[in-house]
Design a binder for these strands. Structure first.
Lengths: 120, 120
DNA sequence: TTGACAGTTGAATATGTGTTCATATATACT
DNA sequence: AGTATATATGAACACATATTCAACTGTCAA
């Protein structure tokens, strides 16, 4: 009676590969954080914001104008990006200027672009 | 009367930067595809599947056992990954073996890991 | 051909999430 | 002080989506 019967609703086909793969899998915590990171990038509005911020430091109003969206929705998304440690901000008078706070963003975007090109 | 009044509910603060950034923004289509790609990676189950497939070609049952999940949920996710051109499959008898169909996956994962490490 | 098993798929449900709206806060200006 | 503006934020709504369940297809073996 295999231990796997309690875990999943099917028989193990290739027990050796399964065991080896299980052993190599990182902790669940790693996958949660990894998925969380990509989920942040997986939204059209946020990816536009990041692309824009990669070019210039900008305030909320600027970004809203570039994307043609409301200040409120942009501010919500910037909050999400800030809490994820992907952007940071500095206050200057009434305005709040946002910049990228992760030097991997451009890299990730480039690979994403390559994927798109490849699948075209 | 700026054109932007019709697009967004706020005044333009830095018109020059806004215009320059708008000019440099890729088409909406690009952002849709880019976000779609990252959205696929932005799920714990799918990222686990991809990590596992990066090590071995595996059938649905194998993957279900590695992740400790039902065949059905894995099959649904594999369908999503297949339709996105991220995995491909080959049939052999009753079994269907899946492999990665995008050589950028490992790269993207590594950058994601760096992000996690950096923010720790 | 009948039964067992690998895999797929559609419907249903539960949960997550993006935008809007209304409101609050903070700063600058008169 | 009072007003206007920039931004933030909570609640609500609409929509997307991950998993489960049940039913189905296709393949192998007896």
């Amino acid at each position: 009676m295999s231990k796997n019967e309690f875990i999943c609703d099917c028989n193990v086909i290739h027990q050796d590969i399964v065991n080896k793969t299980i052993k190599n899998m990182p902790d669940a915590d790693i996958f949660n954080k990894l998925a969380e990171f990509f989920k942040i990038l997986g939204d059209t509005t946020r990816s536009k914001i990041l692309f824009a911020l990669d070019q210039n430091e900008m305030c909320v109003c600027d970004i809203a104008n570039v994307l043609g969206m409301s200040k409120s929705s942009i501010s919500h998304q910037l909050g999400t990006l800030r809490r994820s440690g992907i952007v940071k901000c500095r206050k200057s008078g009434k305005e709040v200027f946002y910049t990228l706070d992760d030097n991997h963003i451009k890299e990730v975007f480039e690979i994403g672009m390559e994927h798109i090109e490849h699948k075209k």
